[in-house]
Design a protein around this nucleic acid. Structure first.
Ligand SMILES: NC(=O)c1ccc[n+]([C@@H]2O[C@H](COP(=O)([O-])OP(=O)(O)OC[C@H]3O[C@@H](n4cnc5c(N)ncnc54)[C@H](O)[C@@H]3O)[C@@H](O)[C@H]2O)c1
Ligand SMILES: NC(=O)c1ccc[n+]([C@@H]2O[C@H](COP(=O)([O-])OP(=O)(O)OC[C@H]3O[C@@H](n4cnc5c(N)ncnc54)[C@H](O)[C@@H]3O)[C@@H](O)[C@H]2O)c1
Lengths: 217, 217
DNA sequence: GAGAAATTGTGAAATATTGCACATAGGTAC
DNA sequence: GTACCTATGTGCAATATTTCACAATTTCTC
């Protein structure tokens, strides 16, 4: 405890990935898993798994492996996904509506507590998940009173920065940005971008290489 | 040309990111940009921008900078996003329907040419984009005749591997996987995963650190 | 309880990526 | 055409990340 080593960003990313197969293993009744098997399930190197975990303590038993339930609990604790987090979402188009209805988020402790849109034709709509779309003029007050932790941006790209500014002004310290526009934030607010087209362009680069050489680039 | 250096994966990822602000700059009429300004727009180091581009040739003019239109065209050529690509999608739930309606994909040359679902209540539905949802039994034939390049997986997680297998069996060499389940593919098929919850867990890790220390971890 | 088998945790080596710093070269002014 | 300004392209050093390889520890067998 009190370990002040700087944790590599890829390690954090992978910890979240490890938890997916662990959830399945837990459901299927597997109680113990080795770093080698977990690594194979995640497509990484076994030493990587052990080293990633070693940043945070000793979770395994030598000669045996890791207890699935304990390891999953430990990872969730490390990441903070053992807690419930309150989310709000700005931009209730096709993507926004898909996001708030998604069951996986709720299952993992992420609760959408408010939804906003600037389009007055959308405001007032009652969504299947139970939320009612509100005007962005209500954002600050709602975010503060509902103690929103994370803001999700799914509005049109040119409005993304404005949405981020509104969220930060209301005290939000973490933003998940689905728009392909870069949002600028001060140090104290973390942003994760989810840009599908970037992934697609990655894919076609490798496709090209496959067509040229028979192998991915 | 014929440069056989291995290109770092982060470079490919960033090239796609550079093209976003370049598109905006082109629209707004800016003709020339320096690596420093582009770097600031993308939140990276200017030397990084230059080095990334240097893997593929010389695109700038010393003392001046890069011609916005030329650079954008060059990046698109490198990535393969100067071409049109045909996509199909497996799983037409909330997310699948949002994806096929998205205008950004079309604008960038990614055309959805077929949509599949295993649920017979969904099959036959005519979508706003013009496609009709087809049963997965039609997948192989359709993918082959429409010459689909990329398969998008947006079905429920336990079915993701089956979807991937079907796509590969039909000759698809690139998969964009939105389900949180890992899909295994042979070397010759590239996969990009888009896992929103992994991003969220990243975010809450840093949120925790902000709460503890006032700064992101 | 000694030896064999398995698998973790980890220092150190190997590899990959980033960023500095500057030589190089195009453009402009006169 | 020379001097100066600016910003690229790049060798090299610094930093970051991954992987190896093995000592340490536990369990199992007899
Ligand atoms: N739908 C997808 O599959 C997909 C894929 C990749 C990226 N994206 C990105 O996600 C974002 C949303 O996509 P979408 O398909 O839902 O678009 P959409 O056009 O269906 O919805 C955008 C919504 O944002 C609202 N909006 C606009 N300005 C706003 C503001 N200032 N404050 C609050 N709300 C505002 C609009 O009223 C609209 O309801 C876009 O940036 C898009 O590029 C979407
Ligand atoms: N909606 C989101 O915002 C969101 C967010 C994160 C992750 N995801 C993931 O994306 C996927 C789709 O999410 P969703 O919200 O659209 O779910 P959904 O339940 O609304 O839709 C899933 C669809 O897949 C179809 N399906 C099931 N098995 C299939 C098969 N073998 N072949 C073809 N189709 C099949 C179902 O009939 C259904 O129409 C899920 O894996 C989900 O975890 C979605």
């Amino acid at each position: 405890m009190g370990n002040e080593t700087k944790i590599p960003a890829p390690t954090i990313e992978r910890l979240a990935q490890y938890s997916r197969p662990l959830e399945s293993l837990l459901e299927s009744g597997t109680t113990v898993i080795s770093s080698e098997k977990l690594a194979r399930l995640c497509g990484v190197n076994p030493a990587q798994v052990r080293k990633d975990l070693a940043y945070f303590g000793e979770f395994g038993v030598r000669g045996v492996g890791y207890d699935v339930a304990d390891l999953l609990a430990a990872i969730k604790k490390i990441l903070g996904s053992d807690q419930e987090w309150a989310l709000c979402i700005v931009g209730m188009g096709n993507l926004g509506r898909a996001l708030v209805e998604n069951e996986n988020f709720k299952k993992r402790g992420y609760r959408f507590v408010a939804a906003f849109d600037s389009d007055s034709r959308r405001v007032g709509t009652r969504l299947p998940c139970g939320l009612t779309i509100q005007p962005i003029s209500r954002l600050k007050e709602e975010v503060e009173s509902l103690m929103v932790d994370i803001g999700v941006i799914s509005c049109i790209p040119p409005e993304a920065q404005r949405a981020a500014d509104l969220l930060m002004d209301a005290g939000v310290k973490a933003i998940l940005n689905f728009s392909p526009a870069q949002v600028r934030t001060p140090e104290c607010c973390v942003v994760q971008n989810v840009d599908f087209s970037v992934k697609l362009e990655n894919l076609v680069y490798h496709l090209q290489k496959i067509e040229e050489t028979g192998r991915p680039g």
